[in-house]
């Protein structure tokens, strides 16, 4: 490329994986496309290359009909081998809802999902407290900030053994928790029985993030909120700023 490309901004490239049964792939694609600095593309579950991508999104839905356990079959998709390699090389991977369940089944994040405590499919807006903005997925939020995102799941009751829980806490891997309007972590604010009100966690290296609520569904005020935009802003900021020292304050959104 000629030196003039210095003045052009290279878009941050997102790949949205489409499994048979995914149903939030189009929402994720659309959410990404609303950012000037980002470029989405679909990936089929049989693809085996992730060339040139900066971030992979495993979207929500019912991959493989949720047969056996949610995410249990999707983890054997040809593309998951590539996603695992991509993550091991430091690529950013975000699993939303069913995507989170797939990351758990694949062992790319610790723990497992149980059925919701109330046995019901829950579909509503919930309050979440951002526990750490020290991830490429939450850098645009303030730590402690309360945001509102929708949940839509039947198996979102996160479980992990005692030793695993200690590790999550020691490494600051719990990224979002269900809370009340004021940011208090209470049993009442917990929609599904999730351990320690956990709604989203990252791996130790902080480049793989699983989250049950759907940021991609609240990226525009005309559909009821824009609190999810921060996740995409964070990713774009983290990728764009990876080469240079980005000023984190420039990534913060007001919302």
């Amino acid at each position: 490329m000629a030196a003039s490309s210095q003045t052009e901004i290279t878009p941050v490239r997102f790949g949205v994986v489409v499994f048979p049964g995914s149903n939030c792939d189009a929402d994720s694609y659309h959410a990404v496309s609303t950012f000037a600095g980002a470029e989405p593309r679909y990936l089929w579950h049989k693809d085996t290359h992730l060339d040139g991508l900066d971030c992979v999104i495993l979207p929500g839905g019912f991959s493989y009909g949720d047969y056996l356990r949610c995410g249990a079959i999707a983890r054997f998709s040809p593309i998951m081998k590539a996603v695992r390699r991509f993550a091991e090389d430091g690529g950013l991977v975000i699993g939303i809802c069913n995507g989170f369940q797939i990351l758990l089944e694949a062992g790319m994040l610790p723990g497992a999902m149980l059925q919701n405590r109330g046995l019901k499919f829950i579909c509503k807006l919930v309050n979440l407290r951002v526990e750490s903005n020290r991830t490429p997925f939450t850098g645009a939020y303030e730590t402690g900030q309360v945001i509102r995102l929708p949940v839509a799941h039947h198996e979102g009751n996160y479980y992990i053994g005692e030793a695993g829980m200690r590790e999550l806490e020691e490494n600051n891997q719990i990224i979002v928790r269900y809370c009340d309007e004021d940011g208090a972590i209470t049993p009442k604010a917990n929609p599904n029985g999730s351990l320690a009100n956990i709604a989203g966690i990252c791996n130790r290296e902080r480049n793989v993030f699983g989250v049950m609520p759907h940021p991609e569904r609240v990226c525009d005020e005309i559909i009821g909120g824009a609190d999810g935009r921060g996740v995409f802003e964070s990713i774009i900021g983290a990728v764009a700023g990876a080469g240079e020292q980005a000023d984190p304050s420039s990534l913060r959104s007001s919302g």
């Binding site: 149980l114 405590r117 029985g193």
Partner: peptide, 13 residues
């Protein structure tokens, strides 16, 4: 079966 000590909401119901 669900592991001992793991909440089983279906069983409880």
């Amino acid at each position: 079966t669900p592991k001992k000590g793991i909440l089983d909401p279906q069983g409880l119901t």
